[in-house]
Write a protein that binds this DNA or RNA. Structure first.
Lengths: 106, 106
DNA sequence: AATTTGCGCAACCAAATGGTTGTGTTTATA
DNA sequence: TATAAACACAACCATTTGGTTGCGCAAATT
């Protein structure tokens, strides 16, 4: 077990994915987010902490309220990884095609 | 805690992400995959079980060997979710623009 | 026929995860 | 000024996760 607390782990939990989707519609305070979930405030706070620690949300204090905003740029890392894997996959076939083409020549 | 064992959870672990990337280069048996990792065979087997259960890899018996192949189509679900969140995000600004434009008219 | 290779199954373990409740503090509001 | 709202912190808990070791079995190899 190495490091933890990265974007991949952040979006692994369905509740956290829902939080991100909710915040995609606009910034909200904790109480407002809570409305959509059937968990305790502390439970939600823990999820927000995970999201905050990996930069998926930014939190700003405003009076007694704590506004949470989604930082969707962080998802670039995920998309980037997926694309990299897919590139390797397609290159595998390109190499095979090349090999077959060269074999044909002989 | 609801369901588990989906693609999001599959790619949450760094070791499993490396397995997927390795398999993107081509199908391998368990021993071959093991070469790149510093864990026990059983540890690796558990990761492969997770990946298999969510359809990220397909496993085929061949004699005494067990060939593992990456099924990258499954990553569509991840990309789909990311895109959906981003769409909501941009629509938020479009709505704001529209509102501002209409306010200006009056 | 004996040995090696490739693998599965089960038990076990520490740490992380996802959740809870209780208490306290600061900021608004009546 | 008393009260309510919005939150943080800490302790606790069951389950899951990621890892291990030991044993056994079937397929290849010598």
């Amino acid at each position: 077990m190495v490091e933890r607390r990265d974007v991949f782990q952040a979006i692994a939990d369905p509740t956290r994915r829902m939080i991100i989707q909710k915040l995609s519609e606009g910034a909200l305070n904790i109480g407002q987010i809570l409305e959509d979930f059937d968990i305790s405030r502390q439970g939600l706070t823990k999820h927000l902490k995970v999201l905050s620690e990996c930069g998926m949300i930014s939190v700003t204090q405003k009076g007694r309220e704590q506004f949470c905003e989604a930082r969707l740029e962080q998802l670039d890392e995920v998309v980037g990884w997926v694309n990299a894997s897919r590139k390797t996959w397609t290159q595998r076939f390109e190499k095979l095609d090349k090999f077959l083409a060269e074999t044909k020549k002989q």
